[in-house]
């Protein structure tokens, strides 16, 4: 019974993270038309900063030595965790502040990325963002002071003041709450004048400019906000898994988010939510199936990737607008029409 609950909680936790990522990509691509092929870069930014900072920041407070950090980081982390477990207020403070920091780092990276993102053509932009992600991963792998290079770094748990199943429930609930908040904010943004502006820029850049809208700034804002969300997701993820490793910054993560957005339908947040659900659901089913299928000389994961790739191609060919197509904004009343 507990196991099924744990399974469910794990699923919801992962869903929360990918929901935030999908919503952020939807904001950038669905609403504003920026093809962000480097989503994982901003996600990793948030995750890496949590990994790099949390333990090191708290160690002196906890009276834990930071000597030989790379090799001892797991020990350091668990010691910090036990320190936190007797300090719920500090734990929550750390959680919140690190989440904010993660979002901030993501946003800053997004701001830096906005320079090329706005000026480059989509094909160059696609290549650039992928390359940038790889640079980030390379540096993380080799520059030990960041996240202990190839070992990866352990992250202290700010949830440790709880125990057992309560911890899991609280943690998942918190993550889901954050995800819902992000989703809600994205919806508000989408239905606001700014949201309309984003779509105007996406659909007809020239016309938007002719109307005096600063297209460059609008795109930059969208990318910064989206990247901030991704950084937030990364930070949440780091605290959830308790480990940050350079290979969390692999391009396939970006691809997975794209699949979610396309399955669900770009251009609306419901689609993003639905797409994430479907993808994760399928992935979970395949993972479970893995337990029951034996005697296959290769990793089942690869089959699921192949299936995903084919599914995506078929989707692009036959239903590119996804399951929840974007509805053109409807004028509901004369006053609304007069307003815009």
């Amino acid at each position: 019974m507990i196991d099924i609950l744990r399974l469910l909680l794990d699923f919801v936790a992962l869903y929360s993270i990918y929901l935030i990522l999908s919503v952020s990509l939807n904001l950038e691509y669905g609403y504003t038309g920026i093809p962000n092929f480097g989503k994982v870069l901003f996600f990793a930014g948030g995750a890496f900063v949590v990994g790099a900072v949390t333990a090191r920041m708290l160690a002196p407070l906890a009276g834990v030595s930071l000597a030989d950090y790379k090799l001892r980081n797991v020990v350091v982390s668990s010691q910090v965790t036990s320190f936190l477990s007797s300090n719920p207020l500090l734990s929550m403070g750390v959680l919140f502040s690190m989440l904010v920091l993660g979002a901030l780092v993501g946003a800053i990276l997004g701001w830096i990325a906005s320079y090329p993102a706005i000026r480059l053509r989509e094909d160059y932009l696609g290549m650039t963002l992928v390359v940038a992600g790889e640079i980030m991963r390379r540096i993380a792998l080799n520059y030990d002071p960041l996240i202990c290079g190839t070992l990866g770094v352990a992250v202290p748990s700010p949830y440790s003041f709880l125990r057992g199943i309560t911890l899991d429930v609280f943690r998942t609930g918190f993550m889901f709450g954050v995800a819902m908040l992000v989703w809600y904010l994205a919806e508000r943004l989408a239905h606001s004048p700014f949201g309309r502006l984003l779509r105007a820029v996406r659909d007809n850049e020239l016309a938007a400019e002719a109307l005096g809208k600063d297209v460059v700034k609008v795109r930059a804002i969208a990318l910064v906000v989206g990247s901030g969300m991704a950084g937030l997701a990364g930070a949440l993820y780091a605290f959830y898994t308790g480990v940050v490793h350079p290979n969390d910054c692999v391009p396939i993560r970006t691809f997975v988010v794209w699949v979610m957005v396309i399955i669900g339908g770009a251009g609306n947040n419901t689609g993003a939510a639905l797409g994430s659900l479907i993808y994760l659901g399928v992935e979970k089913i395949i993972a479970i199936a893995k337990y029951y299928v034996h005697g296959i000389p290769f990793e089942i994961n690869y089959v699921s990737y192949i299936a995903l790739g084919i599914a995506l191609i078929l989707l692009l060919m036959f239903k590119p607008e996804g399951l929840v197509p974007e509805r053109p904004p409807q004028i509901r009343s004369r006053s609304e029409a007069g307003e815009s």
């Binding site: 691509y29 093809p35 092929f37 989509e122 094909d123 696609g126 396939i252 691809f255 794209w258 396309i262 000389p297 290769f298 990793e299 690869y302 089959v303 990737y305 192949i306 995903l308 790739g309 084919i310 995506l312 191609i313 692009l316 590119p320």
Partner: peptide, 30 residues
């Protein structure tokens, strides 16, 4: 399809090819 769609498709093809090669390598190995 526009450039972005084609790029996404090429990433999908990439994943399929690479995973296929992994499977092939594993099968060959065993």
């Amino acid at each position: 399809a526009g450039i972005v769609t084609l790029m996404i498709a090429s990433i999908a093809v990439e994943i399929v090819l690479r995973s296929g090669l992994h499977i092939y390598a594993d099968v060959l190995s065993s």
